[in-house]
């Protein structure tokens, strides 16, 4: 047994990261696309948005569990303090938003009195009482936090590419591939 911390994320963590990366980006595009559309696209995008959101909620629970159990490889020792702090802050923001977005979506439909249709006849129970004021607040939060999530993802992607292409310090490959 080595006492050296792993330099790379574990396989389950990497699979979850890249799966969720694709799904979350798809979800954000579906979200802004469906609210800006009046064509038939609107309808089928809404029908994908809800089950996909619940799927992402399940995945983020699993992901947090693995993260807490397995931890993350340390950042390079020579990384400047401000970048280190930004990295930790953005990862915290990503985890928070990955939890909040589906929960707010589900609560928002509950507060608006809509049946929360998962798929076909499968309904989810409401998780907050019907209340139009609560609906309004959650509905706005869903939009603004989606924008925040997208911006955080852009920052995360930019930083990952910076590590991978310019610093070449192993941070990018720690998520991109297995042990070297």
């Amino acid at each position: 047994m080595s006492t050296t911390p792993a330099t790379n994320f574990s396989l389950p963590a990497r699979v979850l990261h890249w799966t969720m990366a694709v799904l979350i980006l798809a979800m954000l595009f579906i979200g802004v696309g469906m609210v800006a559309s009046i064509s038939e696209r609107h309808e089928w995008l809404v029908q994908i948005h809800k089950p996909l959101g619940i799927a992402l909620l399940v995945l983020v629970v699993l992901r947090l569990f693995i993260r807490l159990k397995r931890g993350a490889p340390p950042l390079p020792a020579d990384l400047p303090g401000i970048q280190r702090r930004l990295a930790h802050l953005s990862h915290l923001a990503l985890y928070l938003l990955m939890f909040l977005m589906p929960l707010i979506g589900w609560s928002m439909l509950s507060a608006g009195g809509y049946p929360v249709i998962l798929y076909g006849p499968v309904l989810l129970p409401p998780i907050v009482p019907e209340n139009p004021l609560l609906f309004a607040i959650l509905r706005q939060a869903h939009t603004y936090l989606a924008f925040l999530l997208f911006l955080t993802i852009l920052g995360h992607l930019g930083a990952a590419l910076y590590h991978g292409l310019i610093r070449r310090d192993g941070v990018f490959s720690s998520m991109a591939r297995g042990k070297p």
Binding site: G112, P132, L133, F135, A136, I137, R139, Q140
Partner: peptide
Amino acid sequence: TSEEAGVSA
């Protein structure tokens, strides 16, 4: 509903 809640859409 946003108008009722006093938040801006």
